[in-house]
Amino acid sequence: MRSDALTKIYDGKTVVDHISFEIPKGKVVSFIGPNGAGKSTVIGMLSRLIARDGGTAEFEGKDVAKWKSGELAKRLAILTQTNNIQMKLTVWELVAFGRFPYSGSHLTERDNQAVRQAIEYMELTDLTDSFIDELSGGQRQRAYIAMVIAQDTEYVLLDEPTNNLDIYHASNMMKIIRRLCDELGKTVILVLHEINYAAFYSDVICAFVDGKIAAFGSVKEVMNPTTLSAIYGVDFEMIEVNGKPLSIYY
């Protein structure tokens, strides 16, 4: 997946400014950066949710806009930052919609298996028959992620998946993302605000500031006090835990 001079303009304001990069396959790639930096917009353009105003976004050598939507849905799944389904669906019913690109309305045993597994991953087994409008914010977020996991795509794009999650479920989420990559060979692109999660669990970090890429590279390359201070305008101190950089900020 690559982009070249990717650009988005809202009301005359360039919010994504000629961004070019290539997402390495089979890696966990974290997008970080301050609010309004354009992370969600970039993810949206990469996944054909948002129309671009310039540049290219290619998926497997083919423009994302040229892919058949149903075909792309089997290769790439996206969960946006805010989701609000005004519908009384059970967790199972919601997650089962993740299988729609494959089987339409007739779920096979293999589909059911995928749904069950995704629900297990997200530790929602006890809530399988609960209605999503009766869940807590974090439980609902996990149900949405389970749906995307059930979609079982090579590429998974998650915009702030740890939103609303407590520390236990947030770190569990990150471990699952790691497993999706290491065990199932998926490429995961996620937006994160907790930079220590990004440091601990990702292979590549891409930092955005004002619609431009401020840093792109391995965790070691990006996670240093000078770069981070330049990105966020906050003082950072770095320590090392288990061989991984850990930042302290206040």
């Binding site: 054909r48 949710l49 792309l72 849905a73 989701n83 005004q86 669906l89 919609f97 979609q151």
Partner: peptide, 14 residues
């Protein structure tokens, strides 16, 4: 049902 979930969900599911 999928359209009732909104534009982004519909697109994501093709």
């Amino acid at each position: 049902n999928i359209v009732g979930m909104g534009k982004t969900f519909s697109k994501n599911l093709g």
